[in-house]
Structures are given as C-alpha cells and as structure tokens.
Amino acid sequence: MSDLVVAGLSASYRQNKVLHDVSFRVQPGTLTAIVGPNGAGKSTLLKVMLGLHPRLSGEVSFWGAPFAQVKTRIGYVPQRGSVDWDFPTDALDVVTMGLYGKVGWLRRPKAAHREQAMAALEKMGMAGYARRQISQLSGGQQQRVFLARALVQNSDLYFLDEPLAGVDAATETAIMTTLRLLKEQGKTVMVVHHDLHTVEEYFDHVLLLNRTVVAHGGTAEAFTKDQVYRAYGGALRWTGGA
C-alpha cells in the first residue's frame, strides 16, 4: 500500500492558484526530491498535505487515513527561515520540542526525554552544542538541530522543506547520510530540493512540480532533460546526464 496518496489537489496563495490538480502516490521506503522553479508551489504542497494551509479541492491520505488521524506518524522539518532564531532557548530544548506530543500536553519533559533528545543531537554530530543558544549556531548547525528534532519524533514519513539550502558541506553530508539511513529503515522521506546537480546522486525518486505534477517516478525515468525543461519552462541550462 502507498504511504501517501494525493489526488486532484488544488490550493491558492493570496488569491493566486499555486497548485492545480496535483496527483501522485508515494511508496514506502523511498527518498523523493520535490523539484521545481521558484513559485512552483513546493512549500505550499507540503503545507497543504500537513493541513497547515487550506486546500481548495482534492484528497490527501496517509496509509489510507486523513492527516488528523495519523499525525503522530509524520515528521515535518520546516524551512530554517520560518522561525525566529533569536528566541531565547538552546539546541537541546528545541530538539526536546519534538517529544512534546509524547510527553503529553501540560506535562513537563522528564530526564528520559532529554536523554532521547541528546541522542538525536549526537546522531547529527551536534552533541557538543546541546546547551548553546540557538542564535549562536551557524545556519548549518541550526538545520541539524531541526533535523534532530524531527528524528526524536521517530516518524514513519518525513517531509523536509529545503533542508540543504545555504548549509555548509559537512552539514549537507550529515543530513544526506541521515536521510539515507531513514530510508534503509523503511521510512519514507520527501524533500523539497533546489539543487538540480545533486538530484541524481541524492534521491531515488523525483517529483517535478510546476503548479501541477510535470513528472513523477524513479529518478532515471522522471528526471530527464525534456521533463526538467518542461518543469522550468526552458529557463535553464541542462547539466545532468541523459
């Protein structure tokens, strides 16, 4: 059974229709890049699927159920720029937030929760920064904290919005290693990605998006010169293989 089925999805943003009749299915244990030009609706697609942005029409189902019934099985890493990093808190505290659902509302996190959060920071190579103010972390380190927060959720399906935008090479490697590991554990990962050069190297599936689905499938079939040209409307120099 598909992990995620999207059928006939449409959505608008400030009176502009940004998504039109988007339909696709995602199989378990896949690592998919969502690729498309600026304004193609990539971030909006994630937000609509997660119920953070209203949809005009269409259906989204996870393991045959609507989002509200399965939200504990879904992890989301928003764009780094979507939060105020000047907020007074440290890295460990942000990662612990990923466990708030498990801690229970109006209850305080216990030592065991903080240990779990610490382990996730360690996986991202950030153990030494646990008590560092988040405002004092570099962009790459902030992104790793965000990913660690998603890891502690121990979800089955992960959505990441531009996790590799503006990060250093070490962070890029750390993030991709983690995502591959998740995939090997049978989890499903969807990543909004902007760098066309690395799509073939990093991902096994591609969803080419420009307001609607241009192509979707294994990287070899979907990520071809013609399809990418169609998605980007020709405003692009092809640097890939086929």
Binding site: Y76, V83, F87, T89, Y100, G101, V103, L106
Partner: peptide
C-alpha cells in the same frame, strides 16, 4: 504557568506545534 511548555512551542514554531497536534 500551567501551559509554559505549550506557549514556548507555539511562540517559537507554530507550524511545528500544529503538526504535533497543538
């Protein structure tokens, strides 16, 4: 005071909070 943890989550990252069911 009672909702300290919830206020912190909501103020820092309201989208993530909604994903957790808040």
């Amino acid at each position: 005071a009672i909702g300290f943890k919830e206020w912190k989550l909501f103020l820092f990252d309201s989208d993530f909070a909604r994903g957790l069911g808040l």
